[in-house]
Computed example of a mutant assay.
Amino acid sequence: MRKPSAVVFYTLSILASPLILIGYIVWVGKTIATGRSGVSGTAQGPLSARFSEHNFGTRRDEAADRLIRVLPGIPRLGLRLATGPVLLAHRLSGYVPRAFRYPFEGEVSPQYEASARIWFFDAAVDRHLPDMAQFVILGAGFDTRAYRLPADARVRVFEVDSPRTQLVKRETLAKAGIDASAVTFVPADFEKQDWLGCLTSAGFDPGEPALFLWEGVTMYLERAAVEDTLRKIASTALGSVVAFDYFTSEALDSRALYWRFARATTKATGEVLKFGVDSTPPSRERLAELLASCGLSLSDHRTLGADTPSRRAWGGFATATVDKPS
């Protein structure tokens, strides 16, 4: 039986659904147009999840809240219509829907992947960053973790991303009044440039341990670029760690309506799903084999979805370590 607060929340949300739908239509239309301009549209997903958690009061992220309100790819009207009624329903009922609870609870369905991985990556940062001198956010998009670090954090932070997306982010950070002076921005295309060379030229020391955060990126790269990136990470100092998420081949090949729609949507924004770890069960072993071939060892891991011959896993969250010379 649903709690009274949940009944109130969903009743109010249903009554406001026409406004919410209009908001999403406006938002998605602008996202598709933004993707065609060379700025990552899919980078909005993790940002909007952090924005929602901030406004539901489950995970504070002032930078995400400020950034999303002035980001060029997000229409102000679309944001207000899509999120305003839901947040009002929350304030009136006190109910927090499962998608915005922190830490995320229970099984992770595909539509909740962006929300669920926030907790996994936050936990990886909390666990590993105190032992690191360097923090590298690969394919940073509109990630805001660098702007949540304590002022006395003794770690050098680098953000690596495509030149166009990074330029828009830097301009938007300034517009939002967010201090980014402690971050070194490194423009690089994973599929066309030596990103590690660019990173090293910007002051990164490959001889010192680093935490690499690689969120929401692998699925949009060709296999060669994924493997090259993993090998470059493996060439850095012993003890370095990479935290990342991935899809399996199930997400790329499934004829299920959800995945057909997801592939069509990302393609419309100009970011095609390209890479998936072999979904042959157990998929964890397939991932471990891939990492080992690139000089890394799988440590923490969470499989997403069933992992059986009849219902294969569609993705996962993982951390891997550099524990031997590559």
Rank of each mutant, 00 (worst) to 15 (best):
F212Q: 09
F212M: 08
F212D: 10
W214I: 05
E215W: 12
G216W: 08
G216M: 07
G216K: 07
V217Q: 09
V217C: 07
V217S: 07
M219D: 01
M219R: 11
Y220S: 04
L221Y: 10
L221E: 08
E222W: 03
E222G: 10
R223A: 15
R223N: 08
R223C: 04
R223T: 12
A224H: 14
A224K: 13
A224I: 08
A225P: 08
V226L: 06
V226M: 06
E227K: 10
E227S: 11
L230G: 09
L230E: 09
R231Q: 08
I233N: 11
S235E: 13
S235V: 12
S235R: 14
T236P: 13
A237R: 05
A237Y: 07
A237S: 12
A237C: 09
G239L: 05
G239C: 07
S240W: 04
V241I: 15
V241N: 05
V242M: 04
A243Y: 04
A243Q: 02
F244S: 07
F244I: 05
F244R: 02
F244P: 05
F244V: 06
D245Y: 02
D245V: 04
D245P: 01
D245T: 01
D245G: 02
Y246C: 00
Y246L: 08
Y246Q: 01
F247Y: 15
F247D: 04
T248F: 04
T248H: 03
S249Q: 12
E250V: 07
A251C: 03
A251D: 01
A251M: 04
L252I: 11
L252T: 10
L252P: 09
S254G: 07
S254M: 06
A256C: 04
A256E: 15
A256N: 14
L257G: 06
Y258W: 15
Y258R: 03
W259C: 02
W259A: 01
R260H: 04
R260P: 02
R260K: 14
R260T: 14
F261P: 00
F261R: 10
F261L: 15
F261T: 10
A262Y: 05
A262C: 05
A264I: 00
A264F: 01
T265N: 03
T266E: 01
T266G: 00
T266Y: 07
T266D: 00
K267G: 01
A268I: 00
A268N: 03
A268Q: 03
A268F: 00
A268R: 08
T269R: 03
T269Y: 09
E271P: 00
